[in-house]
Nucleic acid binder design. Structure first.
Lengths: 251, 251
DNA sequence: TAGTGGTCTAGACCACGAA
DNA sequence: TCGTGGTCTAGACCACTAA
């Protein structure tokens, strides 16, 4: 399987380890041989062994823990089905392309932050059509699955609509933000989601406990009401390896 | 702006260069100081200067060209609007979050491959509900924008439906594959798209001319007809930085 | 405290690109 | 040909983790 340009020593070591991982020699969560062990085993300098382990991490196969070792990653992605509504049996049993599990996994929410603020990023200001110092209601949360942070979500709504309502409270009540918007005469009737993958900045690496070198998925949802007023912009950043984003629609 | 853990020398150099890029000192396409120049300038070893440049590449800001230098990346993403249909003015002028351009850019297609084959990956077999040696029609293409490869698309259809039809030809005729499926009594009525971001393998790095360390976006579209038969599976792999994926729907 | 990964030095040789 | 980035060595010290 490894017929690549394995003239390079570090690539040879990396592909050896990769194949061993695939073969099950190192199951998910297990520890690989250390830098010194590999250097001795292959008769190379520690820097070269290190480079091989870095390659594995960059492939998304392992994650390095200082003072401990390199460990085989384990993560089956969650499926986020944006356009749900249909429980009918339109889809055959074929299932998804990727292994994925939603059930039997514990979801927790923390780093909740709710409040009115004038500190709104320009890209959000533009979409919400907010003028200079105009305020917005900001709702920020972090989601974790089985203890691993997977998604940070920040929602923005015009203060002219949401200020002083349940939307500006921690608990928005039954039905959540969208139900409250409907109560206020601003029921969302149309949604747009823009997805983009990119490399994270340092704050995101920390907040999502990302393996260095692995991407994040950005998702920006925009909701408009019947008057074509943008009533919410929700900016999400997800651990790209933790999620599959699904969209379904009729022709 | 750079109040991070800049105790590390390579981080200090990397953030310096990053800020200079942001400030416009090094515009898109321009060349950064080389490894030796940086080593001399900062009084560090070449390995450390190298590590700093590697950090910039990993942030997606630059790209290294052997024998030449490190260059500032330039790429505004394309928008792929999956669920089009509506030209109506539902959306206010607010526009997209990301800079994006579709107009005035030249789109080219190459590496076209069309034919009937029994060599179908298992994950595709499962979705198409193909039995053991059953064949499929495969249509593969690569898309480039302004000379830069951005997307590889491979479409699979059951041979029992598509073999011997225009779908198995290079030119599928007016309306394309879906129009032909409709002619054959298998008009797609429902679509599903699963998106996932991941790190590319070596073949993809080459085929999409990717900067090492940057992610790709996987997209798998499944189309079913009125009888809930899966009539097409289209697997796309895109340069993640080249694309924004957009979905719009009514509540 | 012992072992791990993280950073860094000061050299070396090679492959590649542009002049 | 010459400068560039790519690979590699053989050391060193530090920060962190686990026992």
């Amino acid at each position: 399987m490894a017929g690549e340009s394995d003239r390079k020593k570090y690539r040879r070591i990396a592909t050896d380890l990769r194949d061993a991982i695939r073969a099950g020699t190192y199951p998910a969560g297990s520890r690989l041989p250390g830098e010194n062990a590999l250097a001795a085993q292959y008769g190379v300098s520690r820097a070269t062994a290190r480079q091989a382990l870095a390659q594995l991490a960059q492939w998304g196969l392992t994650t390095a823990r200082q003072g401990s070792g390199n460990y085989v990653r384990d993560f089956r992605p969650l499926i986020r089905d944006a356009i749900k509504r249909l429980g009918n049996g339109t889809w055959p049993a074929g299932q998804s392309v990727w292994d994925a599990e939603t059930e039997g996994r514990s979801l927790t929410v923390d780093q909740i932050e709710v409040g009115e603020t004038a500190d709104v990023p320009d890209r959000i200001r533009r979409i919400l059509a907010l003028s200079g110092g105009e305020k917005a209601v900001k709702r920020s949360r972090r989601f974790s699955v089985d203890g691993k942070a997977v998604l940070v979500s920040t929602s923005w709504l015009p203060a002219s609509i949401a200020a002083g309502t349940a939307i500006a409270e921690r608990d928005t009540g039954p039905g959540g933000t969208y139900a409250r918007l409907a109560d206020l005469g601003h029921r969302p009737v149309r949604f747009r989601e823009d997805l983009r993958s990119r490399m994270p900045d340092e704050g995101e690496v920390e907040r999502l406990a990302l393996t260095p070198g692995m991407p994040v998925q950005d998702l920006i949802r925009t909701a408009v009401d019947a008057d074509s007023t943008v009533v919410e912009v929700n900016e999400m950043t997800a651990d790209a390896l933790a999620y599959v984003f699904r969209y379904e629609w009729d022709a």
